[in-house]
Amino acid sequence: MSPRRSYDQYCSAARALDAVGDRWTLLVVRELLAGPRRYTDLHADLPGVSTDVLASRLKDMERDGLATRRRLPPPGAAYVYELTPRGRQLLPVLQALGEWGAPALEERRPTDAVRAHWFALPLLRCLEGEGDGLVHVRLEEGEFFVRVGAGEGPVYGEGPAPAEPDTSLTLDAETCTAVAQGALTLRQAVAERRVEVAGEGTLAKALRGE
C-alpha cells in the first residue's frame, strides 16, 4: 500500500482533504451512499476511472476508516464495499458540494456521462423538510429511490423502491436540475405540473400543497 500523502498542516480542513481530497474519492462515497456495492458495479457507475485508481482509492478509504470490504454469504459470495458510519458522515459534505456546483450544470455536453441515480442526492436535499419517507423517482434516464430522513443505512438506491413508497415522483432531468440549482422549488415544479406526484401519504400531500 502506498504511503499516505498529507498536507502536513494542523488544520481540520487539511486533515479532511488528506482523506478525501484525492480525485474520485468523494464520487466513490457518492456511490456507496446507495449501500454495499461490488467493485464491478462501482467501476460501471464511475465512467472514466481506471481499475488501478479505483482499487487504490478503495484501499485508501479502508485504511482511513471510511469504508469496509466484506464477503456476502452464499449464494452471492461476492465481495462488497460499504461505508462506515464515519464515511456516511460525508453525506452533507457531498450535498453541500452538489449545491455549490449546481450552477455549473448548464447544457449537457456530448461527453457527459449520466446515471439516473446521480440526481438522488440533490433531490434528497430538496425533499428535506417536506416530511420523512420512501420516495420512488422516475426519470427518462432510469429510476431510483431516496429515503428522506434516514438516520442510518443507505440513503438512496437504483431501480424500484424496495417497499411500497410513500410517494412517487415522475419528472425529467431538466426539471430535476432546475430544482437542484434553486431555479424553482419542488413544490413550484409540482404546481407547474413539471413533476407528477402519486400517493396519499403525508409527503405526497405536502408536495401537492394539500
Rank of each mutant, 00 (worst) to 15 (best):
F145T: 05
E192Y: 05
L124N: 01
S6C: 11
A78M: 14
R138D: 08
A113L: 14
E164R: 07
R115G: 06
D60S: 11
R86A: 15
F119T: 00
G98H: 00
G133M: 05
G48V: 10
E164V: 11
G35Y: 06
E174M: 11
P92Q: 13
V135H: 01
A189Q: 04
D41R: 14
L207A: 00
G151N: 05
S168M: 14
L90F: 07
R193A: 15
E152L: 08
R125W: 10
F119I: 04
L32D: 01
A77C: 11
L123H: 07
W100G: 14
R69C: 05
W118I: 05
V29G: 01
E82I: 12
H117N: 05
L26M: 13
L203C: 08
R115V: 08
M61L: 15
D64K: 02
F144M: 07
Q89A: 13
P165Q: 13
P162K: 10
V148T: 04
R193F: 15
L26S: 01
E106L: 13
P165V: 06
P85M: 09
A198V: 15
E107R: 07
E99L: 07
G87H: 01
R38T: 06
A161N: 03
V195N: 03
D64V: 05
L32E: 00
L54M: 02
